[in-house]
Design a protein around this nucleic acid. Structure first.
Length: 303
RNA sequence: GGAGGGGUAGCGAAGUGGUUAAACGCGGCUGACUGUAACUCAGCUCCCUACGGGUUCGGGGGUUCAAAUCCCUCCCCCUCCA
């Protein structure tokens, strides 16, 4: 039975803990799908599972690369699929945990990333207007899809089309967008948003106490703050502290705000991008019910 | 007690007689998202029975066809001198 169970949802909703409980109950391994926890140097910033949690169940996807190396969806996708295939072939079950939306989609669905040709391009030289027109010219259907101001996506779309030598819509149409495995997806959120906000704030304070500043300082010795891996929340914000332009207090407040905003983006993603069953973790009774239902589903070899 | 400066939407901050329901930034809300994704980007944000209407710029009063903008008065805050 190639069934997968996914525990996803907003940040600071207790995903890891829930995943460990479920995994233990059905002899599964855990695959973390977290675009920051995968960095060796950022366990605090990413609120990676504790060692004791990792002792209870075999974990994958955590601390698998250095910030120096960097990571991207395509690479993580192939890593993840390998882990899943191996586990399933050994008769293990797999519980995926994490809140990185795009990474999850790439694993769950048949997203296909062509080998990057790393071709040279001079798009960096062009202004947004020009990039946008160029993109529309190559693929008119992208007109309302990528906004002129979204320079990052504009360039990526253009580079992609150069690489695969076809329009982006042609490239996407080859994918069926169906789940690779039978999957139960649970998304965690709080019904009471104020309470959730409070939880997020508490967790940031906790990270500070655990030595977040030192962790980031060490990481920044390896790569600059402009490096992709350093754009994580709780990391990038320290750049201004180290350069002396903002206080530590201001930085902490900023990290909290960024965390709230991230949670909002996650909610939007899971609401529209994945077929999730929502679990409101402040409704205690339902947590148990959902957990049991999930375990039962995983352990049922029928279906 | 004396001399100045100031009170503008959730916050910061423009505006100093009409084109102002009030720039801009932040926050908040909603949304997009296929190789940076904890990224990047978009829309909305005084109230309502909302292609129209109602109330705003510390309080009250006044001048004016017309005021956040001018005058009077009261309240509060800050700086300096006593």
């Amino acid at each position: 039975m190639n069934k997968l169970c996914v525990i996803t949802g907003l940040t600071a909703t207790g995903k890891s803990k829930l995943a460990v409980e479920i995994a233990k109950a059905c002899d599964a391994i855990i695959l973390s799908v977290d675009s920051v926890a995968l960095y060796q140097e950022l366990p605090i910033a990413s609120a990676a599972p504790t060692l004791s949690e990792q002792d209870q169940v075999p974990h994958y996807g955590i601390g698998i690369v250095s910030v120096k190396e960097g990571m991207d969806v395509a690479r993580f996708q192939s890593y993840a699929l390998e882990v899943i295939e191996k586990a399933l072939s050994e008769g293990k079950k797999v519980v995926l945990v994490g809140g990185s939306g795009l990474y999850l989609n790439a694993i769950l669905y048949d997203y296909e990333f062509k080998a990057s040709t790393n071709i040279e391009h001079s798009y960096d030289q062009l202004d947004n207007e020009t990039l946008y027109n160029l993109m529309c010219q190559k693929d008119p259907s992208l007109k309302d899809h990528i906004h002129v101001n979204n320079r990052q996506r504009l360039i990526r779309a253009l580079v992609l089309m150069d690489e695969v030598n076809m329009s982006k819509s042609q490239h996407l149409s080859s994918q069926k967008k169906i789940l690779r495995y039978p999957t139960k997806i649970i998304a965690c959120d709080y019904k009471d948003r104020d309470l959730h906000r409070q939880k997020m704030n508490e967790r940031v304070d906790q990270m500070i106490n655990q030595g977040l500043m030192h962790e980031v300082e060490e990481a920044s010795k390896l790569v600059s703050f402009s490096h992709p891996a350093m754009s994580a929340i709780g990391v990038r914000q320290w750049a201004d502290v180290f350069s002396g332009s903002i206080s530590i207090e201001a930085c902490i407040a900023l990290i909290k705000t960024k965390t709230h905003q991230f949670a909002k983006r996650q909610r939007t993603w899971f609401k529209h991008q994945l077929p999730c069953e929502w679990l409101y973790v402040d409704e205690i009774e339902t947590i148990h019910k959902k957990k049991e239902a999930c375990i039962a589903w995983m352990n049922n070899s029928q279906e």
